[in-house]
Amino acid sequence: MTLSHVLMLASALFCVGVYGLLTRRQAIAILLSVELMANAANLVFIAMSRFRGGVTGQVFALFSLAITVAEVAVGLALVILLYRSHADTRVDLASELKQ
């Protein structure tokens, strides 16, 4: 188990998240993918802290966690708004600004 292994794992998880972000139509499913990606990033913070020394990486990860949670809260609120206005949560239906 080396640092590069952890980084590879984080990259793979991140790309899986990107795949979900690109394919999913439901807004909530997109939020799930974003969580996946954020988690992969957090993993990198902690791995850096563990392999390179110092506690700052963990502090950063904590902040990042809190911000991700905030993002989920706002994201869900937006999903509910979207559902109210369109009676649906598929993001490709919400493209009024294009017209």
């Binding site: 590879m8 990259s11 793979a12 991140f14 790309c15 899986v16 990107v18 795949y19 690109l22 394919t23 999913r24 139509r25 439901q26 499913a29 598929r90 490709d92």
Partner: peptide, 21 residues
């Protein structure tokens, strides 16, 4: 849960993984 254009997404994410790796 519906998905759309999976092959394109797969190609792009694979590309991203290659770049990161």
């Amino acid at each position: 849960a519906e998905t759309m254009r999976p092959s394109r997404a797969m190609a792009v994410s694979a590309l991203l993984f290659l770049a990161l790796a």
